[in-house]
């Protein structure tokens, strides 16, 4: 095993292994991109609020609603030209919540299309369906 160094072990031998590495990279970038985008939106919203009011205190609540109602109401406000600091902050929260959701969606595609693994396509679909259902909770 000593001859089997890290660099040689990383040499990708089969096409399937190669695809797995690509999938790992994709999942990694979805997670990283989602968190960074969410943070950027929140920082931008807070900065805007600060420029407007000289403070960053936000005193509003989200009436109980599910993520999709939340997104629709935000888009509606944006379409009306009511782009305000709180819109950016709300979108930051939305992006954060959708980050693991898209990670699971990517996993479904990976198991279905790339690996053609029916067992894991079923498992992943179950997770996706439960998450989708929970995002529609009222």
């Amino acid at each position: 095993m000593t001859a089997n160094t890290l660099s040689s072990s990383r040499t990708v031998e089969s096409a399937q292994e190669w695809r797995q590495l690509e999938m790992d990279a994709l999942v990694g970038y979805i997670l990283l991109g989602g968190v960074l985008l969410s943070m950027a939106l929140i920082v931008a919203g807070l900065f805007w609020k600060y420029l407007q009011t000289g403070g960053v205190r936000l005193e509003y609540e989200l009436a109980g609603m599910n993520l999709f109602q939340f997104v629709v109401s935000e888009i509606h406000l944006a379409a009306l030209g009511q782009i305000r600091p709180r819109l950016l902050i709300n979108m930051g929260i939305v992006v954060l919540m959708l980050t693991p959701f898209f990670r699971v969606l990517a996993s479904v595609v990976y198991f279905l299309v790339v690996l053609k693994n029916w067992k894991y396509t079923t498992f992943t679909l179950f997770v996706l369906l439960v998450l989708t259902g929970s995002l529609f909770l009222r």
Binding site: R57, E59, L62, L67, F70, I93, L131, S134
Partner: peptide, 26 residues
């Protein structure tokens, strides 16, 4: 991450997520 999303969706629907608190915490 996925487990937390499931929990968060319940709390969002219940109106317990305050953006003014969420922003500095995140």
């Amino acid at each position: 991450g996925v487990t937390a999303l499931a929990g968060t969706s319940v709390y969002l629907a219940a109106g317990l997520i305050y953006p003014g608190l969420a922003a500095p915490v995140i």
